[in-house]
Amino acid sequence: MKTLLKVEQLSIRFHSANDSLLAVDQIGFSLGAGETLAIVGESGSGKSVTALALTRLLPSPPSCQIEGAIELEGQDILKLSAKELMKIRGKRIAYIFQEPSTSLNPVFSIRSQIAEVLALHRPEIKDHDAEIVRLLDLVGIRDARKRLHDYPHQLSGGMQQRVMIAMALACQPDILVADEPTTALDVTIQAQIMNLLKDLKARLSMSVILITHNFGIVAGFADRVLVMYKGKIVEEGSASHVLHQPQHPYTRALIDCIPRLGQKKQRLTTIDYSEIS
């Protein structure tokens, strides 16, 4: 498998008036072409910050310091100028976020929000409407032509997330970063969206970085998993290996505390952080 993205010695530090926080501590990982890599961990483990750092969507120095290297096919993203970065953001690495209702702009129609992406990154396209209808069809929105002028509030949460995916796919990115894409959705809708992502990934031969705390989703969709704890990668391996034979005590504890269907316990296991070095 060809390596698409290579992260080396990445550290991210946030500074405030009288405090500094090391959010990501010298992590390294790679992403192959066509691969789905899951990053799991609790809030504050650094997983979302890592995802945002991939296109430098973080505050600028001095409040935030990024060190290390993020290489996209040999090009170090951390060394790019703002103008060069524009060609990566959205075009080569696109995002979908947790809460579709806050990611979409409530005062613009979905047509104009997707058209904005096309105008910026694909100026060769003349007929925006036709392309937007094609994209909305692709993500399973029925009667797309009739929905073009809908506003976000006219769509359900699942539909809004489909629009977000359509927008992310508008530039045929090489890498789709999905940061908790289904956390705000019902389980039945979650299943639809995850199946859609799986299908699109295969059809468009994208790589996916999936940030989640849901191990069920990891099991169903990821090839490889990174487990993050306090800014460090504590475990890395194939999804089935990490889920079924976790090596690090933190991974074991994190998997143990999840209630599972059909395996009722007297009491849920909690994480004893003092036992994790």
Binding site: E42, H213, C257, I258, L268, T270
Partner: peptide, 11 residues
């Protein structure tokens, strides 16, 4: 809540 915190609150 996170799964780890969820377990604490359920308990």
């Amino acid at each position: 809540l996170d799964v780890s915190v969820q377990a604490q609150i359920v308990n």
